[in-house]
Structures are given as C-alpha cells and as structure tokens.
Design a protein around this nucleic acid. Structure first.
Length: 1032
RNA sequence: GGGGACGUGGCGGAAUUGGCAUACGCGCAAGGCUUAGGACCUUGUGCCCGCAAGGGCUUGUGGGUUCAACUCCCACCGUCCCCACCA
C-alpha cells in the first residue's frame, strides 16, 4: 500500500461524494428526520477563516453521524451575501457587488469542499438572488399588512463611517458592530419592525426551549429587559400658575375657537376641564358669525368680553389663531400665544373654499409686533391635518423663529373632544417611569433628559429666555457626545435648572425640574423623579445642585441619621420611614400599596417596560433588499403588489452612501419614479434597503424548499423538516440574528405561515478561536492562521480533527500551530496500522460471505460486536466496544475533543494486537465523521484486500455500529485500597467482585498491613469495581 | 453597579458527576535508527526532599461538610463574557 497521500485521497473522495450525491436530503423520507443547521457565512473577499471552520466541522461531524445512524439528515448551506464589505469594495473598485459576491461565493464553496463538509448543495441559497429576496420582500409585506412594519421619524443610531442607520442590537459598546466607529445620534425617517409587540412572546418562548444553553436564554431575557413599574404624572407649576404654592401671579387662559366652532365643540371642553383642574381661570368666548367669520369683528368681541392681562395665555385654534394674531397686532401684551393649526397660506388641503378665512389671511401678519406682545409663542400643527397644511404651521414657526411642534391628532384638524397630546402641549405634565414608587415621599427633584419633547420649545414649559439659552447650549453639547461618553460613570453630574417645578401629588412638595444628561431620552419616559436618599445617581446629582436629601427607607432602627455621603445611600432593602401611610412597611409591600394608591387617584399607571426597542429596519445603503414600498402623494404608503415582486436592485454608477440619510438608490430617477399601483398618479419608490439581518431571518425555512416559485416554503415540507434540531452558531448572534429570526418565526407562526412556533430546538454555541498569541486573529496583528495553509501542509482530515481536539467546543481557545502534528501523527499511525493488519490478515483469514460485516452493509444500526462474531482477542473486542460507546456518546453531547482522545487511547492500546478486517472496518466507521477522507480510503483498501472492491460503498451509507453493554467493561479490574482515605495499594479482581471477595485480599496487602499496624478496622467503605476504604 | 461562566502541570486540556487528580496531545529529556539533521520508534516526564527504597506536598486562597472533595457549602482573590448613569 502507498504512503498516506492526503492530497490525492481528499481530492478523490470529494469527487466521489459529489458524483454519488451522498449528502442529498430527501423530502418526506420514511426515515426519521434530523435538521442540522449551521449559520451561513458572509462570502467575503478574504475567504473563510478559522471562525467559520469551528462550527462547520462540528456540524459536519454531527450530520455525518446522524446519517449513519439512519436519520434522513438535512444539512444545508447558503450565502448571507448582502452587506457592507461587498458594497465598500464596489465603491473602491467600481465593480458591481453581485460580481464580487459571485467570485467570493465560488471561492468559499471551494474552501468548504476542501474541508470535506457534507453539505447538501442542491438546496444552496443566496440572499442576494432575486429569487430569494423576492420572498424576503414578500415576508416584509406580511409584517406591513399586520401593522408591524411602520415608518417613523426618530432619533436613531447612525454610523458616520458606514453612513447608515443602525438597530440597537448593532451598537456594541457605543460602536458600530461592523466597523467599530463611534455611533452618533441622528434624526431620520426610518422603517421599523415592531419587535416590541413580540417582547412578551419572545420571553415566554424561551421557557419552551429546554435544550438551549441557559447563558443564551439569559442573555436574550436580559436584552428584552422586562420591568414592571409605574408611570407617575406630575403637574408642572410655573411661577405663573396661581393654584400652586410657587406662583406669584395667576395665569388665565383664553381659548379662541375655530370657524364653525363653539365653546362646546371639538376639544375645547376637554381642555377647559384640565385647566380648571389646576385651579386656573379659563374663558372660551362664543365668537360671532362663526360660519363666515370676520377677524376684525371677532377681535372686538374678544376685547369687549374677555379679561386680558400680562398673565394671559391665548390659545387660538384654526381661524381662532388668526384672531389671536390680530389681537396682538393691536399692541396687547400677554404671557403666551399658542397657535393650533392656524391657517397661513389661505389654501386648504381638502380643496374646499373658505372665502372669509382666505380674505383674512391674505392681509398678512405683523410678526415683529406680535412677538413683542407675547413673551412666549408656541406653534402647533397637525401632521395628519386634512384641512390646514402642515406647511402653514411651518411658515408661522419660521416667522416667529420658533421650532414647530408637530402632533398627530386622533382626528383630522383636532376635531375630537379629547386630544391628550395637544392638551399636554398647552398644559404640560411630566411623566416619570419608576420601579420604586415607594420612595416617592423622598422625591426632591425631577429631571428631563435633554432630548425630552417638552424641551423642543421653551414655550411648552414657559421657560424664561435666559434659562432657555442655557438649556439649548446644554442640548447641543449633549447631542455631540456619544452615548458611551455621556454614560461614563466617572464623570461629574451636570444639568440646568429650568425654573419650573413639578408638584408631588403625595405631599404637595414642589420639586425643581432640571435638564440633565444622565437621564436618557430613550429609557422609560425620558424623565426621572429624583430620590437622592435611595438612588446613587440621584444622590450625586443632588450633591452638585444642593438639593435636599430625604430618607424614606431604613435598614434597621439605628439607621436613621441624615444621609450625607454616597455610601449611606440605600438602594434596595429596608423598611419605610417618613412616608405617611407607608411607614413600617417592607419596601416591596410598600411598592404595591403605593401603586394601588396612585392608580386609584389617577396620576399613576402601572406599566410594563421593556428594554427592547423596535428594530430600525432601513439602511441608507445600496447593497441590500429594496424595501418594497411606494410613496404616493395621494394614497400615502402603498405596498408593492405581490405580482411585481421582487423589486430588483437597479444597476447604479455610484454606490457611495450619500451621508444625507438618503440611499444611493434615491439618485436613480428612472427607478425611483413610478406610477402608484392604486391611483396611477406619479409616485416614488422607497429608496432605503433592508438591514444585513433580513435575509437570515427566515433562511432555514427556505432550505426546506429552496426552489419553490409559488411560496417561500411549502407547508408540508416545513412540517417534515422543521424545527431545526441543532443549530450551530456563535454567541455573538444571541441578541442579533438569533433574536431577530425567532421574532420572524413567531410572527409567521401567528399568521399560519410556518408550522413550528420556535425555529430551533437546540442551540449549540461555539467558542472563538484566537491566534497563537492568545489575541483575536486579525490581519493588523499578523496572527491569522489560514485554514487553507493547514489543508495544504497536513490535509483536511488533520485540520478537522485538530480543530476539534483543541478543546471543548464552546470554549474560547488559542490556536496552537505546534500541536497540529500530534493529530497528523495519529492519522499516519492509523494508516500504517491498517496497512499492516489488513495485509497480514487478508492473506491469513479468507473472508466468508456470511461474515457479520456483509450483513451490516445496509444503513441500519448494526448488531453489537462480540467475541462470538469475530476471531478477535478479548482485549480488542472490549476496547472496540468501549470505543463505540464513547464516540457515540461524545458526538451526541458535542464532546468532540474527548472523542479524539478516545481514538488515540484506543490506538495506543491495541496497536500491537492482531486485529481483523472486521474490527478495522468498524474502527473506520467511528472515525469517518471526524476524518472522512482517510477513513473512506482505508476502508476501500481493506475491501480490496478482502477482494470486495466492487461491492464497496461510501462509509456514509454503512450504518453506525452499536456496542454490547456486557463488553464495555474489562474482565478484571484494579481496585484501589485505601486506609483512612489514603491509597495504600491495589488489588486486581474480576469485575463485579463483592466486598466479601475483595476485603480479605485488600487486608492482606503488605502496604495495607503496615498502615493498619494491627489496629481494629472500624468501618470499610466498598465501592464496587472502584475502591475499598478501610477506616481505623 | 447588575447578571452569568470559570480558575487543574511548562502549554491545550481530561476526570464515569463525591471514589487512584493530571487521561489524550504538545513540549521537554534520554536512548534507538541515521554520516548528520529531520522524520520515525522506545522510555521517562505534576512539584519538593532523597543515590535509592521511600516520604511529603499539590486542582486560585482560606475555612466547612464527608470514610473520601477538582467536584458540595461559606468567605475572599483573580480571569473572561453579557448588560449598564435602565430610573
């Protein structure tokens, strides 16, 4: 026989496997199924690296093993090929990403085949293939139809280098998950997937995944971050509000109603009630000639019937706004002017004519005069207004130099009786989320995050100009800082006092309202009630601003001094003091009681808060799935009709992200401009693309039916194959892909589109392979070990086995190039060992047709090897049985490293024994999942020696050996003899010997006799087949 | 700050779940083969004392439970991961 030429052998068997389609999975097979999945790779220009090798080899061993065990095994692969690297390469080289992707796929596929991975290539998918992303788009539209995909403008994470928005999950330690650039905040229109609607289901589902590692479940649970607490609403007291103790002068409100309105219509009574609740005066004059109003006439009416002074707030709604403006043109001084949907252009969205309004507006306004008459101006417009255009509000805001307050009324033009959002803009309240309302008697201040909507305009809270300047400066400063900079714990607390107070309803305490960056806009309600006695951050803040600290919790009776230092701040244990009706209660009971109390009084509402945010689902980049949406000026958002899917990515000349928040697609007018599918008028395509994670959110479903043109995956095929039995992948995807794909699956399950509520029955994470220096492999460090180099120098079988032998599959581990030779030596020895034995034996023992080996050629599990079926020595038979047991168990529990040790131990033990071809073939079957090429080759060599070359078939089809339980223990066994727990000797007895048989032998040992020194044995502990301990 | 995982020779790691600690591999040492080197083969290899027989110590540290602890309990030290001014 030749030398072990791994290059030749590996190429040979890879060809044979491909030609015979050994690894193709059959739908609806009669056999029980096994779905083995490994995360599909991104085909990068650099090729696959060690990080890919690890899960792929492990999954491959598992897949080959399960096929041998008789499972119809689905082990598919594909390409997650949308994403930044291809696009960045395109920018640099001006090559279309689909070209580089195709090249990279080809290359990676070659690598995978060179590793001997047993993928079913007939089911290969590629997320960038229009036949694939057609269904990604179709699935997106299912979310849209159920209201779970929505468009909104908000402050999102923005990577300035990649020039795209990012989801929360893609920001790691304040940096972009892709490129490591510090992430900024940017206000952008974005598509979102409402993953928060599934927060509870995602959490609940974890309970039905007993085969998931608890670390993975816990990480998802923490990420979802469910918290139960209460939103407490505080009234805001400015110095102008008379009912509150801080006020020095009384404010009074005048509300001017719209054309065709009256004090009793629309939202006016609701607003009146709220103002009166605060004990303030409110006048709503019934303006004359309401159908064809005349501004001059209405002014006279107001002047005659209403009291107006410097503390008056005039709220003008629609035409009432025009009247309010004219009043101020007369030189009247008031505190504040609030314009709600006031007309500016005289044009109306519904196309109806309002002659008198148009006439009144046409005259124009004297903005300088008006500004000098009102200390504060607030311009509110309704984004959903169907009468007065939003641009009218914008024009007013521009003329006043104030930011526009955009609201979305429940009904067009605020025609509802109750508009809480609007009322809050006129009569603000501050709502704080807390999990500790029990400490509310100790609340001494309130803090708004700088991005709080109440701070979008000084007029909402009536913040004095001098203070407002400080707040604006503070807001600008904050917006420039990244989250990680802002949340650096070592930095001193900063903030600005607004001059405004919030009233604690529990005790009437006036809490000063601050703006501070330690409160984050996207956490809870973006506002915090400060309890410096029982929250460390609040304490630090109170120290800086000299805010009183009140103790309301004590650990014990002696713990009652004033709190003056940080270490005295008690956070989460103790009993209540100084808290009126909570005194003496345990904090947990107090929390429940105070929540009941607040809810009953109507200023608190129990809420469940999740840390999970909705998934920012659009990217301002080229190389992604186009979002299949059309924007029509008449119909609004229109989904692309199913028959028009896929919306293909058009070719472009420039791939550069614009950085403006628009995708490069926006520049292709031919593609962007399209007829509205509903009304046929001119419309535009959505130009954002989907994120990297879209295609992978359902790919395991596509594998079950990858060629289907009618549906994304046939239900019957899904039913046969899903859920995935074992999913190999990285820990780094726990709160990204793994969470996202569970969300998609749960949603699709609710729509009846998938057959299993959870996609993956078992998750098997793997550790990272570090460079030989113990650092993360990277080009810049120069510590990258390329798997192809090992394939070339030692062969794929050695690479596979060595990788598995490095250590436990889930452990992070440094590559050790030196010890690769150990595994290679082992395979060399196996080669020589088989060579020696098959040669000798085949000439000595002529094979019989009825030998057990012939019977086991089917893919069925085989009958146990025993002495009676071979001419083998007892030692070899027992060693083999033990090996079968060990390898079977180790693969099933993913202990690949110890499986390899077991092979080596076996070989060391029997290398000098005579061994039959039957036993060799058995050994090769066990080795096959780990080192498939060399196993196949040796198996063929043995068959040749036996003269059976023609009936030879792949070991993959040869069935998995079973063992004889009676033969996995040795015939005789060494029993350790201890005296008082110390080893004094050993006796060799038959396996299963009793204490009566062993003890006399033990006591008779020379070393034992010495140790006993004639003393009486008080007790003897006997562990069968293991030890005997004599206690004296 | 909260949560989790872990700590064993010169190195990667093993230990049937409370029963001989250091399997297997690397490395190292000696010997064989060889002109030599490599490769390969054999033997040895936790630490300390001792020529040896032998003895003592040893699973991060300290305590506890037990006939018996790497394994269970308590405290501390250290490393890694996740979350985090989360209200």
């Amino acid at each position: 026989m030749d030398k072990y030429n791994y290059k030749k052998i590996e190429a040979k068997w890879q060809k044979i496997w491909a030609a015979k389609k050994v690894f193709q999975a059959k739908d609806f097979s009669k056999k029980p199924k096994k779905y083995v999945l490994v995360e599909f790779p991104y085909p990068s220009g650099a090729g696959l690296h060690m990080g890919h090798l690890r899960p792929y080899v492990a999954a491959d061993v598992y897949a080959r093993f399960n096929r041998m065990k008789g499972f119809e095994t689905l082990f598919p692969i594909g390409w997650d090929a949308f994403g930044l690297p291809a696009e960045n390469y395109a920018i640099k080289m001006r090559v279309h990403p689909s070209k580089t992707t195709a090249q990279n796929v080809k290359n990676a596929k070659k690598q995978m085949q060179s590793w001997g991975l047993s993928f079913d290539w007939s089911r290969e998918v590629n997320t960038t293939d229009p036949n694939y992303y057609k269904w990604t788009q179709w699935l997106f539209l299912q979310f849209y139809k159920k209201g779970l995909a929505y468009e909104a403008t908000g402050l999102i994470n923005w990577c300035p280098k990649d020039k795209t928005g990012l989801a929360n999950e893609e920001v790691i330690d304040g940096k972009c998950e892709r490129c490591g650039t510090v992430v900024e905040k940017k206000e952008l229109r974005q598509w979102y997937l409402k993953i928060t609607a599934y927060a509870e289901k995602l959490l609940e589902g974890l309970k039905n995944l007993p085969e998931w590692p608890s670390a993975v479940k816990l990480q998802q649970e923490n990420w979802i971050g469910k918290k139960t607490g209460i939103n407490i609403t505080y009234d805001v007291a400015s110095p102008f509000m008379g009912s509150l103790q801080t006020a020095d002068k009384s404010a009074n409100y005048i509300i001017l109603h719209c054309r065709g309105g009256s004090p009793e219509t629309d939202f006016y009574p609701g607003l009146k009630k709220e103002i009166e609740r605060l004990g303030l005066k409110v006048q709503i004059p019934a303006l004359p000639n309401t159908d064809e109003p005349n501004d001059a006439e209405q002014i006279e009416y107001v002047l005659k019937n209403c009291e107006i002074d410097e503390n008056t707030v005039i709220v003008g709604h629609s035409f009432g706004g025009v009247v309010a403006l004219r009043l101020l043109e007369r030189g009247i001084k008031v505190k504040k002017l609030v314009l709600v949907c006031a007309p500016f252009s005289g044009e109306f969205l519904d196309g109806k004519k309002r002659v008198s309004v148009t006439a009144a507006v046409k005259k124009g306004f004297d903005f300088d005069k008006i500004k000098s008459g009102a200390r504060f101006v607030e311009v509110i417009a309704d984004a959903g207004d169907l009468v007065v255009p939003l641009s009218d509000g914008a024009s007013f805001a521009e003329n006043f130099g104030e930011p526009l307050i955009k609201l979305t009324g429940r009904e067009p033009h605020f025609h509802s009786s109750d508009e809480p959002e609007l009322i809050r803009m006129i009569l603000p309240q501050v709502t704080c989320f807390t999990t500790r309302p029990d400490t509310n008697f100790g609340a001494t201040f309130v803090v708004l995050g700088p991005e709080h909507p109440l701070l979008s305009n000084p007029a909402i809270l009536d913040i004095e100009p001098k203070i407002w300047d400080q707040i604006k400066t503070y807001q600008v400063k904050t917006s420039k800082e990244g989250d990680q900079e802002r949340t650096d714990e070592s930095r001193k607390k900063t903030g600005v006092f607004t001059g405004i107070y919030c009233v604690n309803t529990l005790n009437g305490y006036k809490m000063p309202l601050y703006v501070a960056d330690y409160v984050l806009g996207n956490v809870g309600t973006g506002a915090v009630v400060g309890v410096p006695g029982h929250d460390k951050r609040d304490f630090e803040f109170a120290q800086v601003f000299n805010i009183p600290v009140v103790r309301v919790v004590q650990k014990d009776a002696s713990d009652n001094q004033a709190i003056t230092s940080l270490d005295q701040v008690q956070e989460d244990e103790g009993t209540m003091v100084n808290s009126e009706f909570l005194n003496g209660m345990d904090i947990h009971a107090a929390t429940q009681k105070i929540m009941d109390y607040m809810e009953e009084k109507g200023y608190g509402k129990r809420v469940v808060n999740y840390k999970l945010r909705d998934w920012v689902f659009s990217r301002q980049r080229y190389w992604g799935e186009p979002i299949p949406i059309i924007h029509c000026p008449k119909c609004g958002i229109v989904p692309v009709p199913e028959k028009d899917l896929p919306v293909k990515l058009p070719p472009v000349k420039k791939y550069e992200p614009t950085g403006t928040g628009e995708s490069p697609l926006a520049a292709i007018s031919k593609w962007v401009n399209i007829k509205c599918p509903v009304c046929k008028s001119r419309a535009k395509r959505e130009t954002n693309t989907m994120p990297q994670w879209a295609g992978s959110s359902w790919y395991w479903l596509r594998y079950t039916d990858s060629k289907n043109k009618k549906v994304f995956a046939d239900l019957k095929k899904q039913k046969y194959w899903t859920p995935v039995d074992v999913y190999f992948g990285g820990m780094e995807h726990t709160t990204l892909h793994l969470l996202y794909s569970r969300f998609w699956n749960l949603f699709l399950y609710d729509q009846g589109l998938v057959t299993s509520s959870e996609p993956y029955k078992k998750r098997q994470p793997h550790g990272i392979i570090l460079g030989p220096d113990g650092e993360k492999m990277s080009k810049s460090r120069g510590n990258v070990v390329n798997p192809q180099d090992i394939v070339a120098s030692h062969g794929a079988d050695t690479l596979r086995m060595f990788e598995l032998f490095l250590g436990p599959h889930e452990d992070t581990i440094a590559w050790n190039s030196n010890s690769v030779v150990g595994v290679k030596r082992f395979l060399d020895r196996v080669w020589a060992w088989v060579d020696k034995n098959s040669g000798k034996v085949s000439s000595r023992v002529h094979p019989k047709r009825s030998s057990p080996e012939n019977k086991t050629a089917t893919a069925k599990s085989q009958s146990p090897l025993s002495l009676t079926t071979t001419q083998e020595s007892d030692k070899v038979v027992r060693a083999l049985n033990k090996l079968i047991k060990k390898i079977t168990e180790d693969i099933e529990t993913f202990h690949f490293n110890t499986a390899i040790s077991a092979f080596m131990e076996f070989h060391n033990e029997v290398k000098d024994e005579k061994i039959s071809p039957v036993s060799i073939k058995l050994f090769l079957k066990l080795l096959y999942p780990f080192a498939p090429h060399v196993s196949e080759e040796l198996n063929q060599q043995v068959d040749k020696m036996l003269g059976r070359a023609k009936s030879q078939q792949s070991l993959q089809l040869a069935g998995w050996p079973s063992f004889d339980p009676a033969m996995v223990v040795d015939k005789t066994i060494e029993i350790v003899v201890q005296v008082n727990g110390r080893v004094k000797g050993k006796v060799t007895v038959e396996t299963g010997s009793s204490q009566q048989q062993v003890q006399p032998l033990a006591e008779n040992l020379e070393g034992v006799k010495q140790a006993l020194a004639g003393q009486e044995i008080k007790r003897a502990i006997f562990v069968p087949n293991r030890l005997i301990n004599l206690v004296i």
